[in-house]
Design a protein around this nucleic acid. Structure first.
Length: 426
RNA sequence: GGAGCGUUGGUAGAGUGGUAAUACAGCGGAUUGCUAAUCCGUCAUCGCGAAUAACGAUGCAGAGGUUCGAGUCCUCUACGCUCCGCCA
């Protein structure tokens, strides 16, 4: 959520900034008109409240003769007050709906552009492997090694689900363990969190009101399924007033994640790239209000996820995401993409975002600064690792001519020391 | 699923239907002095405003209701604790 006073005082700048995200300038004017309308009603209804309070309070000291008259007057003012309040609450709801739909301001560093075609590759790390044998894609590798039950599970659980087994199942868990260890060593608090959520955290995080179609909803219990631990971690301290000494808060949250993928019809329908339920270890940071501080943490989160891909020995590229491809909450976003040999391209494994105050305002997540003033926190998030998607580049990059898959040294301790996995490993 | 008891500021904690005590922490100021103490003020949100001024409104888990007036009475909801039942 944006600061309405800032919008009122810097209207032209705000219009220009939000236009970079494709947000129309007229909507800023409409918001301000609604704001001024709301304030007028606040002023008039507060004047009536004041009058009502004065009359009520005078009853205590009034004589028995005076009372009936004052009570009658107070009743009358009370009714006018109630009418004014009703008008106000309509306008207030309209105003809140409008401001909840305003995206965050993009950073000066983010390139302008309408969609993902304008994203900029900042740099690439690692060699794209040259195979001297015909490569298999991850689906063929799973079939060859008896690593999955893709066809059977589709009958049980439907499209875009997966079941993996044997060494690949062990690998899925091992990668999360490796990532959790790295995050713990970097000072993160490890958490396993629920995937069920009430509605309010979805607004706090910024999924709602933008993407209701993407979210599983269970009407019997009025409960939603979370698409990421970010959602839960962002609301964990909702409505709290922290102390500056408590910051930064670093969380590594593990949870199953649920996405309807309603807008992805026809995309990545086979295999492990895009599924309705997956496991993610998420990096989440709450820091103080200093822009330099959130920039520092953004770079730190990026560095951690790069190390993770390097430990897994996956070649990757770092994208600076353009204004039009960023989600509404984001100020600045990097995507990390790992090389997928069978598709001859890089595919997203991590998304690293600085949200600045936008989520904290929705979440009412504040702290008392060392100067005694109350301020909003800033939040950042990045994938730690998401499986099974990360297994796709992993098994394809590390595949051998016989269909077995090499385990990089950094991961071997989590795989019981195995250097290779697969049917043909002796 | 059932029963009982709870939910008050950053924290702790009072509050017979009539302006939310008090203490601690934090911040600001003053004083004395010497490694701190004492005193005063402030301490959430919003409106009007140039204002971090004055004034006013709101805020006691949330939403309704009764009343001239609700932290206090009534209804519903959420959450917590204790117990019963069920259970990986």
């Amino acid at each position: 959520m944006l600061d309405i006073k800032f919008i009122a005082e810097n209207t032209e700048w705000v219009k220009k900034s939000l236009a970079r995200k494709g947000f129309p300038a007229e909507k800023v004017d409409e918001l301000l008109a609604k704001y001024y309308e709301m304030n007028k009603l606040k002023t008039s209804s507060q004047a009536l409240a004041e009058e009502k309070n004065k009359l009520s309070n005078s009853i205590k000291t009034a004589t028995a003769d005076e009372r009936p008259l004052i009570i009658a007057q107070s009743k009358q003012v009370g009714e006018r007050f109630k009418a004014e309040q009703e008008k106000l609450s309509v306008v207030q709801t309209e105003f809140e709906d409008m401001i909840l739909r305003m995206p965050n301001y993009p950073s000066a560093e983010s390139p302008d552009g309408p969609d993902d075609s304008a994203n900029v590759v900042r740099y690439k790390v690692g060699e794209i492997p040259q195979f001297d044998f015909p490569i298999r894609d991850h689906i063929e590798l799973m079939a060859l090694n008896d690593w999955s039950e893709m066809e059977r599970i589709a009958h049980v659980s439907g499209a875009r689900t997966y079941a993996i087994k044997n060494d690949l199942a062990q690998l899925e868990i091992a990668i999360h363990m490796m990532v959790m260890d790295k995050l713990r060593q970097n000072g993160f608090t490890l958490l396993t969190v629920p995937s069920i959520t009430k509605e309010k955290p979805l607004f706090n995080q910024g999924y709602l009101p933008f993407a209701r179609d993407e979210i599983y909803y269970m009407p019997a219990d009025d409960i939603y399924l979370s698409g990421t631990a970010e959602l839960i971690l962002n609301s964990l301290h909702a409505d709290e007033l922290l102390n500056e000494a408590d910051l930064p808060i670093l969380y590594a949250g593990f949870s199953p994640c649920y996405r309807r993928e309603a807008g992805a019809a026809g995309k990545d329908t086979r295999g492990l790239i895009r599924v309705h339920q997956f496991f993610k270890t998420e990096q989440f940071v709450i820091c103080n209000n200093d822009p330099a501080e959130s920039e520092k943490w953004h770079q730190k989160l990026l560095k951690i996820s790069e190390e993770i891909l390097q430990d897994l020995e996956l070649p990757y590229q770092v994208l600076e995401v353009c204004t039009g491809d960023m989600g509404a909450p984001k100020y600045r976003q990097y995507d990390l993409e790992a090389w997928v040999p069978s598709q001859n391209c890089y595919r997203e494994t991590h998304s690293c975002s600085n949200i600045t105050e936008w989520q904290a305002r929705r979440t009412n997540l504040r702290y008392r600064g060392n100067d005694g003033k109350v301020k909003y926190c800033q939040t950042l998030n990045n994938t730690g690792i998401a499986t099974p998607r990360a297994l796709v580049p992993f098994v394809e990059i590390h595949q051998q001519a016989d269909g077995s898959v090499k385990i990089p040294p950094k991961l071997q301790p989590y795989m019981g020391g195995k250097k290779f996995i697969g049917k043909n490993v002796r």
